[in-house]
Design a protein around this nucleic acid. Sequence first.
DNA 1: AGACGACAGCTTGCATACCTTTTGGGAGTG
DNA 2: CACTCCCAAAAGGTATGCAAGCTGTCGTCT
Lengths: 231, 231
Amino acid sequence: MAAKATASARTGAKARALDFVKGQVLTGAFRGGDLISEGEVAEALGMSRTPVREAFLRLEAEGLLRLYPQRGALVIPVSPEEVRAVMEARLVLEQFAVEKIIRRGPASCGAIADALATEIERQRRASAESELPEFLDADRAFHTIFLDNADNSILGGVYASLRDRQVRMIGESALRDPRRIETILSEHASIAEAVRDGDVVRSVTAVRAHLTGTVLALGLAPESVSSFTWP
Amino acid sequence: MAAKATASARTGAKARALDFVKGQVLTGAFRGGDLISEGEVAEALGMSRTPVREAFLRLEAEGLLRLYPQRGALVIPVSPEEVRAVMEARLVLEQFAVEKIIRRGPASCGAIADALATEIERQRRASAESELPEFLDADRAFHTIFLDNADNSILGGVYASLRDRQVRMIGESALRDPRRIETILSEHASIAEAVRDGDVVRSVTAVRAHLTGTVLALGLAPESVSSFTWP
DNA sequence: AGACGACAGCTTGCATACCTTTTGGGAGTG
DNA sequence: CACTCCCAAAAGGTATGCAAGCTGTCGTCT
């Protein structure tokens, strides 16, 4: 549900307001701690407060804003605690999804591995051409594959909102280091390989290692993100 | 700080609308498949459409309604697939929480076990007096203890919304059988005991068994709810 | 100088009015 | 008899107006 950026004109003012505010928050144009008002955004977009109001409400439910009565909308500042919680949640969900997919049998493993390989290739190309947005989108797609194929729309929806938040808190900061990009590609490849082999333990381990790497790149203590310890 | 005796009146119309619609959906007064309109609810509550609209929006985000443009709000019918997804998600989250809590050490295990025991006692009393709402509330409290103590507000929030949905889909149907109540109490006791002992494997196993029991009581195939298979 | 209080400006909360879209039924036609 | 077209009723989408609440400030009193 996150990627409908360009469908603005046709889909009513509400969607436009939602995309706009969400975009501003995710890209950091609205910074954490900022207090924004409905009228402000409404005027900027040339619409009335009503659609903006609905967008605010939605974003509050998604955890990006906090609405203070009669005061305004606070862009929730990213706390280290929230980063930790998001990464931990991602770990739990991805671990679940990977294991479930693999246990479904070798047939589907192949298909998934193919999909993963496609995204890795896209990411490699983006990396070579220094297309950061494309790289990030491919990264998102890569990880989304698991949850999209885990046959659980509820957890899939939760995961999507997690990714939104993570994009915001991490941004490109963790990718400043070119070596990090290489590492990501390599870890992704390991995951895809383990999935293709249908090896549950290796796949889960690879996912854990990858996310732990991200946690480290964010400057957090790896122990802070506990989860299932595995056989 | 002031008393909230007049809570329903003091809190705005938005909250009243939200409580009303949510209540109607959860209790089944609005049935799955019903198409309700803003004006309808607004008139019933003696307020304008605006607060009702906001309530609808919120409930859509929570997964209870689906808004069709220019048509109305559909009360999402409970599909077997959704029941399965909810139970699977609960399993994933509770398993995560229990394991994390126990790994924190014996000290906190004791405190948690005490809290669990309190709720079990409340449930036992409610059962003896045939206070079904009280029983359900204690059940909710029992399970919520895990997620509330797992130090992950994000997953905690997800879990809370899951419980809401489950209440709606299950209702009291699964409790028609008095033997089921006995089973629940016994399974809860097993969980609390394993937690007190700080035994990870036994605790997780007990949680799995309990939720699997619920799945069975709902008439679903137990294999349909896959999750981590454990050592 | 410091503290207290009233006021001005901004914000949201809710109501109301108007516009657009959807849809269901009825008249007319093949 | 079935199909199509058209229109009117109804619902949501958006805009706007007004009331109420919170903040910060400025002036006055002690």
